[in-house]
Structure formats: C-alpha cells, structure tokens
Design a protein around this nucleic acid. Structure first.
Lengths: 337, 337
DNA sequence: TTGAAAGCGCTAACAG
DNA sequence: CTGTTAGCGCTTTCAA
C-alpha cells in the first residue's frame, strides 16, 4: 500500500510493454483485445492510477484552471460566487481539470497576479465580474486564455459570458406593473456604466410601454452598499409622493434598501414593494423574502468553462449571452388594487 | 515571447551548466559568486520562471492542497467558507502551494472522493466542519494527510482546529446577563452532539453563576434551519411568560429566528434580544444587525494549513484549540433596566 | 566550484 | 499488433 505503482510495474505484471499499458489507459486502439483484457485485469487488481504529474510534464499543461477573485472584492453577495464555483468545478471535472482558487490584486492601477498565473502553471483563467483594463492587457501579454463570467460590460475581442440585464430589468418592472404598481423607483449605481445603462433602459422601456415616465426624484444612481443607501434614500422618504415600489439592479442593493426601510419604520411590502435581479441565496433568508429575477448560475459557470476549454484546445469559440426572465416570487412585492 | 524557456536555455545563455542554474534558483551554495551573478543576470533579462510540472514529477509531490466541501452542504452560512478559503489561500501561498477547490459526496453512508484525491494529486486535504467516520477511514487507508478545520467534535488521533465553544457560549450569555436579562432561552440542535453539549454547558454555567436555572420551556434543541424554526418556535410564543433574550448556538440559527420573530410581529430587540456565535458576514447585513461572538477565520484557516504542512513535511504537530470571547455588538440585544 | 549524466512516470515516434 | 527508445524540465548524485 505504500510505494506508488508506476506504469512499468503494471507492464511487468501484465507481461507487456509500457506502451501497451498506456494505450489501454487512454482507450487507444492498435492493441489486441487479449492484451487489453490482461492489462485491464492487472489494473483492477492493483488499483493502479497513473500519475498526473508525468502527463503534465509531457503535455506541458497543468490541467488546471484558476478562478481569480479580486483580493479586496469580498462582499456579502459572495454566495453567488460559491454557487458559480460549484458550477465551474462540475464542468472542470467533466474535462478532467482541477479548479484552483486564487486572488489577484489591483491597487492604484497596478495589477499583481498570483505566482501560479505568472508561472503559467494554469491553463486558463475565469474571472467573475468585470476586470480592469490594465489586467486585460497584462493577461494578453502573458498569453493565457481567460474568460470573464458575468461580465457586465461588453469587451470587444474578449470572451465573456453575459446576461441580458436589459431584458431582466424589463421583466422585473413589467411584473411590478402587472401587480398594479404605477409609481416605481430605481436603485442602482454607475460603477459598471454598461450594466447601469442596460438595466436603466429596461426599467424605462417597461414604464413607457405602460404610458408612464421615469420620475427622476425616485431614481438613485449612486447606491452601492449600506452606507450609500443610508446617505441617499433618506431624501426619498421626505418626498410628499412616495413610490409604491422600487426596482433595484442587484439583490444586494435591495437587501440594503429593505434593511434601511425597516429601520425607518417603512414596511416592505405593505408600504413599498421591492424587486431586484440576481437571486442570491441570501435573498431567501431575509424577511421579507426578496422577489427577484433569477440568474442561472449553473449555466453561467459551465458556459465559462466550455469557452475556456475551446480556447485551450484552440477550437473556435465565442462569447455567450444568457437570458434571464424567471421571476422568483417571494414576499417583497405586494399587489396593488 | 512564445516558446517557453527551459533551464537549458538559461544555462546556455549564461555559459554554465544546468546544475549551476538550478543551484541559483534554489539559493543553494557551492557556487561562486561570479557564476551566481551571471545566472541571476540572465534570469532577470529573460524573465525566466522554472516550470512547476518538472519539480512536481521529480519530487513526486503536487504542491497543491485541496479544500473539500460536502457536495450537498451548501447553505447560506457559506460566507464563512469564503472567508476561510481566503485565509487558507494566503497561508498556502506563503508555502508556495496551490489551493484547489473540490467536493466530496456522502450519500447513504457511502463516500465518493474526487479524482484528484484518489489520484493522490494533492498533498493534503482541508475539511471545513466535521466529516463522517466513513470518510475518515477512507482517508486513512488512502494515507493522505488531512486536517479538519472547525471540527466541533473531538476526534482522537486526528488533526483538527477547534474552537472552545463552551467558553464562547458562556461569554455570550454572560453578556446578556450583564445587560440585565434574567430570562434567557436557548436555540440549537444536536446534529453535532459534542458541539451541542459544549455550547449548552456554557449557557447553563453562565446562568447558574447568576443564580438562575435553565428553563426547559425556553430551550430548543432541534432547530437547524428555517423550516424547523417555524415548526418549533411557534410554541414558544404561546407561553404566558416569554424570555427577554434568546441565545443561539450559530449565527444562521439566529438569523432564522429573527426572521421568524419579525414575521410574528415580535420586535427584535425591543421584545426579545438575540445573540449568537460565529459572526458570519451576513450578520452585519440583516436588520437588526446581529450581536454575536466572533470566530477568527484567519487564524482558523492558517492554523489548518500550518498543521497540514507539518504533516506533509513529517514534522511533529498537533491539533490547535482556539478561544473566542470577542463580542461584536450590533443591534439585536437591548439592555434591560 | 563545476558539469555530465541519470532519472522522476508518462507518451508517442518508430521499428519490428 | 507489439516493444524499444527518446524525451518532457527539472534536481541531484558523482567525478573531475
């Protein structure tokens, strides 16, 4: 049980050459059935498993791909990440690849990549959320294939997995309107300008289709966390006419909003309904449960890996665009008569 | 920029042997300063980085360690995991190791390990939370070093990182008493019997030190998620005399409890205060913010890696036991006069 | 202090 | 259909 078996041991035991064993292991043909069976037998008996490290050296590949997080990006929406990591892992496993967890640093415009990337000890990279241009340039110089999953912005010439957030926003607001709401506000931020404008268009279109117009007094575009929520939403509450519903461009923002409203003794959904986009796990755990447009994390993850594998295998490939129109109805939206 | 450089290229360029380059790379001595400088120069010029895969083959080590999650264990307290993974990664990096993310399966008493573990393509394993005995046996047969971080139960002969949850519970309840509470309930479950009994002792001791006794009507030992909360806490609310505070053995349970109380129109902390143990990120995002005993995730993670590295290097090592007595005061506990 | 040579476990030409 | 052989890029004896 102690000394690891090698392909030579198996070859010897089966009375054949290493080549024969190798062929059997890799399901190649050009080998007689009898030999194959004999080898298979020995492998079964000995519980032999070939060593990845030898293959790695031979193929000059690491058979691992890395998920790269921004070192400082940890926020409480990370549950989304763990779900995606599971999806990435599942797909990597199907390709016999490992998934390593890594972090990069981006401070004052300078990018620091982890050693395994600099060493080219990974065959490809997955990023979750958008990455800075400086990083893109660095990566292209390094010549390592990478894909950006859930890229909100559109990058020419890069491989990304995108969600149609315009449609998602449109769907969310349409739902609000169908529940009888006529006064619908908007909560978001412009940190990701492309994302913001997609989502805002969806919001406006839905409104306009019902003959409504955007009321700037109910629109907030600098809400990105709890602090900014508290800073800005206060002025909403002082207005004479309040919206009956707020659409938030991300679940996290909606959760911060609900928290703030509760603190201000405004009931959700009795006084104000709230809807968002994402469906992170957390949204089902707060009270009231958040009604939101679901994003398919499984598809997001596996598409990213599929693209990466094509890139690694030099096969033609392209970005993928996903659609999100499923509303998870929970408790944060009330119908208005 | 295309063809990867090898040690031979560097040796040739520097006009020395591969051995010399290897010595320089590994800071060995037995080499003249002049040669060393020459080699260093070439390395700098060429930006040469040695290939891990060759080392891996030579040393018969993968220089990677795996974090293994139970495939089905994803709950919303996973934020705790991401924090720990960051800590694990940081420490792995310090040792020049990679961290791979993997999942194992445990269904109907049968354990399925991922291929990289079966292939011994990882040098060590970290588990977060306790693992089933069947898994322990399997691992011992495979002869792969592993450590259980945040093991609640005590395992003879295994390496674990434990937290003194008795003390943590004691500290939490003491805090409640200091705020004037005299009627304090308990919420937990016996899924991890050792964990339960530690925590319950801490709870009882604190009470008894103040001349109070445990009131069984306020103690719940089968609360593990939202469903069981709704099932059991209902009967608490029908009692004539309610507790003024509830101590929960985990943040997640406290969050479920708060959600349920809010649904039942019981105000936290005005009607009932809530305290717990863990300090997951989520606890700062709900309303009211959860007051809780913090667990040091950084220490948890790095201790686990330190133990593992000792195990891998065949150095003597031992389990580590952590202490948690810091209370993060937020809004879920009210002082009673 | 140096360099030649062997070998880690595997794959794939290439001959037979 | 089968086996011999030469590497993949590194480390490390071992002799000079």
């Amino acid at each position: 049980m102690k000394n690891k078996l090698t392909i030579s041991d198996i070859a010897k035991a089966a009375g054949v050459s290493k080549t024969a064993v190798s062929f059997v292991l890799n399901n190649k043909d050009g080998i007689s059935d009898k030999t194959r069976q004999k080898v298979l037998e020995v492998i079964k008996q000995t519980n032999y498993r070939p060593t990845m490290n030898s293959k790695r050296l031979f193929f000059q590949k690491s058979f691992t791909i890395a998920v790269l997080f921004d070192e400082t990006s940890h926020r409480f929406d990370n549950l989304f990440y763990l779900d995606i990591m599971s999806a990435l892992l599942k797909r990597c496993t199907a390709f016999n690849y490992s998934l390593v967890y890594s972090e990069y640093r981006f401070i004052d415009g300078v990018v620091t990549l982890p050693d395994n990337v600099l060493d080219k000890d990974v065959d490809g990279l997955v990023f979750l959320k958008d990455i800075p241009t400086a990083l893109i340039t660095t990566l292209q110089n390094l010549d390592i294939p990478f894909v950006i999953a859930d890229a909100h912005a559109v990058h020419e010439g890069l491989y990304t997995v995108n969600v149609d957030y315009r449609l998602a926003a449109y769907t969310a607001v349409k739902y609000l309107l169908a529940q009888g709401h006529r006064r619908v506000g908007f909560v978001g931020n412009t940190q990701l300008p492309a994302f913001y404008s997609q989502v805002f268009s969806g919001y406006r279109e839905a409104l306009e289709e019902s003959g409504l117009t955007v009321n700037p007094a109910w629109c907030f575009d600098s809400i990105s966390n709890r602090e900014t929520t508290e800073q800005h939403i206060g002025q909403l509450l002082t207005q004479k006419e309040l919206p009956t519903a707020m659409f938030c461009m991300e679940d996290v923002l909606a959760i911060a909003l609900i928290r703030y409203l509760q603190k201000s003794k405004i009931s959700v959904p009795d006084d104000i309904s709230v809807i968002a986009i994402d469906d992170i796990l957390l949204s089902n755990e707060i009270y009231p449960g958040l009604t939101t447009v679901a994003i398919d994390k499984d598809q997001l993850g596996s598409s990213a890996i599929d693209i990466l594998m094509n890139l690694i295998g030099q096969k033609p490939t392209g970005s993928v665009s996903m659609t999100a129109t499923d509303i998870v109805v929970r408790e944060s939206v009330k119908a208005i008569l």
